[in-house]
Design a protein around this nucleic acid. Structure first.
Lengths: 337, 337
DNA sequence: CCTGGCACTCTGTGTTCCCGAGTGCCAAGT
DNA sequence: ACTTGGCACTCGGGAACACAGAGTGCCAGG
């Protein structure tokens, strides 16, 4: 049904529409791309493409605009991810060079990605569940209050203030710290719950109430809270892209951590470049937007995801190239630190 | 020059314009507010107000709109900060209740403020320079790498990975930790530099290179980086407010930490409620916006500032009330934790 | 199966026109 | 001296209208 030339026409339509933001007509196509056929022939192909639901005309006697289905076909079969230019690659390196702190890496990454793609960039913090404990620290703050600091092998630091049920001396703090570290050091975070469950038996009875409180806070920290830490940047790019309507909805979605999470995360294969186009994503209000996301991580392990959100009418090859490159580079940085 | 009735007219104009978002004419004023005079009289007063630069008409034969100068007079002399309703006060309490972690407090505060005012909320992290060191922790990560964790009395935690010039054993780490804590515990952060400068003398010669590296990182962390940590929320509210033009500029400004910093911070008296109206702020691109800010802190000490940014045409009494209430309440929370 | 030609259908734009809101001024009233 | 009603004037915004141009679908011929 869709021969090569029709696909070429679709590709041409997508490319032209992305660059001009105006419905593209048969004559313009024949002029700008040398397809070797006349406008009339193109018109026939366009009619077929429209029957198939790949393109759509806003009104009679206007050009055609790709539908979500059209973009999907374009992304899957008609385009190649475009590698970055040398200058861009160098920009990435200088931008991320010399950063040791995780917060700083994430912050710079999200800004870099926003600048590079001219869209809104979204970066999820390296997931706790896939990393391991490097160190647990207990710092006394007051008689019945300590601060718990949890450091992971990805450089992530979680802190939490804990109110204890009883007064606890420095020596007991040291002891607890030693026990905790012995038990948890190097432990995969997903295995922490079972490890923790077995711990109280090794403690003296007097330590158990305090330990129970601390351990429950550790679990809480791991489970409830930090899976979902996400930052974004480049919202100003939204205003530039002529969003007809719904800018408000988009901004609202961006501030909903949960929504962002699902946008980035709902996929089986973490490592692949994922593209979600327009209505393919589950949120009304984001109907006019596409998400390009990729997993990143140190070495082979996938730690989290990052990506960009922009108008459906975006330059997919370039955007996908940028997202993939940044994901890889951040992975290298994390592996090296 | 401006008698009481003219001031009343100005107040009425501001109030009407804020609520309707349309230029307000003499007849509408006479109808909606019982000023006890006829439209014609009001017209005369309006002419006087326009001469004084307090109001302005977009074009001949349209109503009047307050100028920045007009809003200024309104805020300074014609309005009273409006206290929150009981429901709102309760909302604040439930929203912030039970938060122990500083990150969480800040995050919730900024969201609360955005929700309460329906504007963009901005919160600066408690300033390091005004707080004191509570604990310094050194955690070995690898042979020549440690993580430095700095905890302040406001619950703020700063971490930084440090590459050392030489291999360092656990015992030496412990020793350094002890020395650092002995020297810095309770030390006002503004006094850290001098304290640090005197430290190397107390160390054995072999420890000095390592200590120097660590100390320089501490200084760097304090001075360079964290004075400027700022978060914002509620950008979606910008889209709702019908910003004629420049939404892009506003979003860009919001992502510039430095700009935000200056907007919140440029004032002598930290504790007072500050209002900066339209062109009073130094950034073009923010000409159509006003900032309402207040200092907050635990007890008497001012630690940082928070506020909101919205269209010049905002309900100042209500907004000021909300900002002040939130600032006070956050102060209480911080003092209690 | 492609192509040129042709009639047709729209939208967007520019023009004109008119209504109404709102003003400024003036003369009369208190 | 201030307020008030009256009145002429101005201007923006919306409605009505026409029109050009881009683009289409279809058809008959190569």
């Amino acid at each position: 049904m869709l021969d090569d030339r029709k696909l070429a026409v679709l590709r041409a339509i997508v490319e032209d529409y992305v660059s001009t933001n105006e419905p593209v007509g048969s004559k313009a196509l024949a002029d700008r791309h040398n397809l070797g056929v006349s406008p009339a022939t193109i018109r026939n192909d366009m009619a077929a493409l429209e029957d198939g639901g790949y393109i759509h005309q806003p009104h009679t006697s206007a050009g055609r605009v790709p539908t979500d289905k059209g973009y999907r076909l374009f992304v899957d079969r008609l385009s190649q991810v475009k590698p970055l230019s040398g200058a861009e690659r160098r920009a990435i390196e200088t931008f991320l060079a010399g950063t040791l702190d995780l917060d700083e890496i994430v912050m710079r990454t999200v800004r870099l990605l926003a600048q590079l793609t001219r869209h809104v960039a979204v970066v999820q913090y390296p997931s706790l569940t896939r990393s391991t404990v490097r160190h647990v620290e207990i710092v006394p703050l007051a008689d019945t209050r300590v601060m718990l600091v949890l450091i992971t092998n990805t450089g992530r630091v979680e802190q939490r203030v804990v109110d204890l049920p009883e007064v606890i001396g420095d020596d007991r703090v040291s002891h607890l710290r030693a026990v905790l570290n012995a038990a948890l050091d190097g432990c995969g975070l997903s295995k922490v719950p079972e490890t923790v469950a077995a711990l109280p038996e090794r403690l003296s009875p007097e330590d158990r109430p305090v330990a129970a409180t601390i351990l429950s806070v550790i679990l809480e920290t791991l489970v409830e809270r930090h899976e979902e830490k996400i930052v974004f940047a480049g919202a100003a790019n939204l205003a530039a892209a002529d969003f007809t309507i719904g800018l408000r909805d988009v901004l609202e979605a961006l501030e909903e951590q949960v929504v962002l999470m699902r946008l980035l995360g709902e996929t089986d294969d973490l490592s692949e470049l994922t593209v979600r186009i327009g209505s393919e994503n589950p949120y009304t209000g984001l109907r006019g937007t596409s998400i390009v996301a990729a997993g990143y991580g140190a070495g082979d392990k996938e730690l989290a995801r990052l990506g960009v959100l922009g108008p459906t009418r975006m330059d997919y090859p370039v955007t996908m190239g940028a997202v993939r490159a940044v994901a890889r580079y951040v992975g290298q940085i994390l592996a090296g630190s």
